[in-house]
Structures are given as C-alpha cells and as structure tokens.
C-alpha cells in the first residue's frame, strides 16, 4: 500500500518547494563577499580626478559604498532614499560611479543632489567585478575593520534603510 503513496508524497514535497519558490527571487544572488574584507581599489575621484579614492582611507569608520550610474533607472528610484540617509548623518555614503560618462554623472548629481562626500570613478567596471557587482545600484555596508557586513542588491528603500541598514550601522559603530 505504501508504495502507491510514494508518487503522492514526492509530489507534495515538490509542491511545497514550488510554493516557497514563489516567494524567492531567483535573480538575486547572495554575495560570497559578505564577511570578507572589502576588496581594495584606488580610483580617481569624480569631481577631482587628480585625487584618488580608496577604502584604505576609510579604516576605522563604518560606511556605505554605493555603486550607481547616471544611466541606471534603479539609481534614480533609490536616490531620494540616499539623500535622506545622507541628511540624517547616520552613516556616510560613498559613491562609485560605475561604467559611466564623467560629465553625465556630474550633471546627474548636480540635478538630483549629491549624497556622497566622495565619488570614485569605475569607468571600466573593474572595481565592480571585484565587488561582485552584477547590476547597479548595489550597496555595501563596510565596518571599521574594512569588512563587508551587508550587501543590498537593487535599489534601497526607506524600509530597508530603517529596518536593516541603520540598526546594522549602529551595532557596528558600537563595536
């Protein structure tokens, strides 16, 4: 008798998984870099190309690294959230202008506002590859020791900022 129930049992297991699958996003790929040291780079700055921007400068601080581009529509979506977060002074957001035209990036920031103290330029997308970026915007939370603690794939929204980013930053600050 039990062997006749086998197909039904297998099917039930599959259906449960398919049900869970409906709530998952197959396109979101968790980063293996979380918990590892943020890859080093040294890129020219957007507004002052003679100067370089490097994570080494940020040692001892908790900060966000936000990959964005003027051509990216998700970046426009999350931009007001970044502006609010920058205004609140909770955590500094550093930008990385990913595969973009310098003048267009500057126009974009002057038009919509600039939440970043410093913006690095990653015109060849190399830094992006080292950080495992596969679609902008992506945002990394990096702690005082320079370790990546969290990665946001896709636009940040105010809920994520309030419920995840700010508590995490506070916790990291306290360490």
């Amino acid at each position: 008798m039990t062997r006749f129930l086998l197909p039904l049992s297998i099917f039930i297991v599959v259906v449960v998984f398919l049900g869970i699958g409906l709530k998952l996003n197959p396109r979101e790929i968790p980063s293996p870099l979380v918990g590892k040291a943020a890859p080093d780079f040294s890129q020219p700055q957007l507004f002052e190309p003679a100067k370089v921007f490097s994570p080494a400068d940020m040692k001892g601080k908790v900060w966000l690294l936000n990959f964005w581009a003027s051509w990216c529509s998700g970046c426009k979506t999350e931009h007001p959230v970044l502006m609010d977060l920058a205004k609140s002074g909770e955590v500094p957001i550093y930008g990385m202008d990913y595969k973009d035209q310098r003048d267009e990036a500057m126009t974009w920031l002057s038009r919509w506002g600039n939440p970043y103290p410093v913006v690095g330029v990653d015109d060849a997308g190399r830094v992006g590859i080292n950080y495992g970026v596969y679609g902008v915007p992506e945002t990394y939370v990096i702690d005082k020791q320079g370790v990546i603690q969290y990665k946001q794939i896709g636009p940040l929204d105010s809920e994520t900022v309030e419920k995840k980013i700010i508590p995490l930053v506070k916790q990291l600050e306290a360490q």
Binding site: F4, L5, P7, L8, V15, L18
Partner: peptide, 14 residues
C-alpha cells in the same frame, strides 16, 4: 490548480 489536479489524481491512484 496543480496541487488539486495532480494531487487529486495521485491520491486516487494510491
């Protein structure tokens, strides 16, 4: 729908 059609058939089968 899958659960009803296939589950129902397999239950009938069992």
């Amino acid at each position: 729908f899958l659960a009803i059609v296939i589950g129902g058939s397999l239950a009938l089968y069992a």
